[in-house]
Simulated assay, not measured.
Amino acid sequence: MREGKVANRRLFSLLISIPIHWSPPIFHYRYASRTSPATLPGPALPKSLNIALSYRSQPRLRTTLPSQSCIYSPSRHVTFHHTNTLTQVGEVVSVSGSIKKQEGGKKKKKKHSSKKTVEKMEAGDTSLRNLRPNYFVGIQISNEDIHKALIQIQEDMVSYDESLFRALVDVATSHITLLVVHVDTEEALSLATSALAKCGKQLMDDLSACPLQLTFSGISHFGHQVVYAQLVEDDHYHRLLDLAEYVRNVFGEGQVFMPDKRTLHPHLTIAKLSKAPRMRGKHAPRKIDPSSYKQHLDIHLGCQTVTGLQLLAMNKSKDHNRYYYNSAQVMFDIKCKDNMDHTQCCFPRRPILKSQRRT
């Protein structure tokens, strides 16, 4: 009994001797004990303890030690769970609403449904800017002549610099991207599928009667990081831009979240360095040398007839033809003359490194 009174007197003297700094509306109190445990409302505090408390409506105390945890409740009771003597307890964070326990100061990412995501972006919520696209609306490039031309360009690039092999895009996945979307729930996928079906219904008559012909000619790059085949900017090219704008408007009206608002620059990717990040023990160039494809700058690759639109998944496994997982598609009433036998260009996968070739 006497020891408890002594401890209380020591605690009172310490609190009086320590200045209180006014930082509205928070008071910071600092307590330290080295000789004996002190008594506060709730369980006894362990020895050698440094703690800072913040008083607001419902503050939350967050520990930086992974082996200990501490929560401060509105009733001003402090609860400690410890295995050894605590030497430091982390910062105090004031929050509104219910009190939640977080260890290590880490915050869990919040998941947003599709409609709420669109509403928040329209309201200017900046917390959703980092949502990455995981689906896209694309046009498949399946013309065999275009594939063969792409393979030839890639083989020459690898012959010039074998380290570019990891940056090459699989020719079997050749496509043109019209827009990218973020789909996080089954409801969002249903909205995206419905929007694609609406596009197909509205575009069916026009694109079936007058098919879209995309001609690829010439090679260019984006900042020496991406090498791509260019589209000839003819009447069909401008029809493609109008098509992409219409699809974007339909997806926007359908409450499908589109994180990328940049102007469309349709292209056919040949190689990109983002596929070959710099790794320990493996060399990857910082840029793609134009000399690796200079002999193909004016190459004519071929013409692709647009037979439909597809909703493709970026993160799901490829199909048996190594093409993107097709979640939904709309096909136009067009008889395509493309040769679907790709054994001379895509199967087996090319190019093949010299070290991988059988002698």
Rank of each mutant, 00 (worst) to 15 (best):
S113G: 15
G90N: 02
S114P: 06
E122F: 12
K116M: 11
V92T: 02
V93K: 03
K107Q: 13
G105M: 02
Q102L: 12
I99W: 04
I99K: 05
S114K: 04
E122L: 15
S113P: 07
G97I: 00
S94C: 04
G97M: 00
T117M: 15
M121L: 13
S98L: 08
S96F: 02
V93D: 00
E122T: 10
K100C: 05
V92I: 04
V118G: 03
T126C: 10
Q102D: 05
M121V: 14
H112D: 10
D125I: 05
K100M: 05
H112W: 15
K110C: 13
K107S: 14
S96E: 08
K101L: 08
G104S: 09
K115A: 11
H112Q: 13
G104H: 05
V92F: 00
K107F: 12
K106L: 12
E103H: 05
A123Q: 15
T126V: 15
E119K: 13
E122H: 13
V92M: 00
I99H: 07
V95W: 00
V93P: 00
E103L: 05
K120G: 09
K109Y: 13
G105S: 08
E122C: 11
V95S: 05
K109I: 14
K109A: 15
K109L: 14
V118Y: 04
G97S: 02
T126F: 13
D125T: 08
